[in-house]
Amino acid sequence: MKIAITSTGKDLNSNVDPRFGRCSYFVIYETESKTYEFIENPNKNADNGAGPASVQVVADKGVSKIVSGEFGMKIKSLLESLKIQMIVIKEPTKTIQDIINMFNK
């Protein structure tokens, strides 16, 4: 199963980015092989439509869950139709490593 996590930087000690559409990086984590890859978000500085464009980026990777701090209004119905689960983290101090550890428990 693949999970996308929004990240502020491109290493495992970065914090979870509280924004979804304009986050700095996406981490795509594969739970079976325990591998991960960082993707720079091309929509980081987009004026509008960053959310739907970012959904496109992660949906192309075939993720089934997304972990972020907040999801915008345009995205929710889109993710529902793609059957992708949204997980909202309200603690911005969590690092990518923390999240991955939680999935591996």
Binding site: S64, E80, M86, I87, V88, E91, M102
Partner: peptide, 22 residues
């Protein structure tokens, strides 16, 4: 436990455990 919010992508099945901390 971990104070996260999550949605249910498959509306027909009820979710029984937290996707993050189980």
């Amino acid at each position: 436990d971990c104070k996260c919010y999550f949605s249910n992508p498959e509306l027909d099945n009820e979710i029984e455990e937290c996707p993050l901390c189980k």
